[in-house]
């Protein structure tokens, strides 16, 4: 099936089977391997991408249904002026260890900060409930998101 997938601001004409999952279209067709396949059962959140700005799990989405949607992967988060404030904050505050969960963590956090500019720690933890870190680095992840929120409003 022919589809048009808009990823990180660029359109891609792809031929996929209807059963192709979005995560495989991104990784295998577009070579955007920043999006990870973790549990493959929509629990761990390593495959999280933004669909029209909202965090969703790309292992549970069919690529054919994404025709017309605007998808953002970790590769598309940085602007021309350098890394996204969340990427800066995760690096600065040791928000990752092995790094496998990091793209998902950052994109879920981006969804949160787009809706809640100054979240409490409880709100941050609630927003990241669908992202698992097997290095158990949650404390630094929460600190990173908080730091990015603080940086975002210039205080």
């Amino acid at each position: 099936m022919e589809i048009e997938l808009r990823v990180n601001g660029r359109g891609h004409a792809l031929t996929v089977e209807p059963r192709t999952l979005l995560v495989h279209a991104l990784r295998d067709e577009l070579q955007l391997t920043g999006t990870k396949v973790g549990c493959d059962t929509s629990q761990c959140g390593a495959c999280t991408v933004l669909v029209d700005g909202r965090a969703q799990k790309s292992c549970t989405l069919l690529a054919v249904r994404m025709d017309g949607a605007e998808i953002t992967t970790i590769e598309g988060l940085a602007g021309d002026s350098g890394p996204h404030p969340l990427q800066e904050a995760f690096a600065e505050h040791h928000g990752f260890q092995c790094g496998f969960c990091t793209p998902g963590m950052i994109l879920s956090s981006a969804d949160l900060l787009a809706r809640e500019a100054d979240p409490s720690d409880e709100q941050i933890r609630h927003a990241l409930a669908g992202n698992l870190c097997r290095c158990t680095g949650y404390q630094q992840i929460v600190e990173s998101v908080r730091a990015a929120a603080t940086a975002g409003d210039g205080t």
Binding site: S42, G45, A55, T60, S108, D111, H126, A129
Partner: peptide, 9 residues
């Protein structure tokens, strides 16, 4: 229900 990603979809 579920988590943020699930509730978004």
């Amino acid at each position: 229900v579920g988590d943020v990603q699930v509730r978004n979809a």
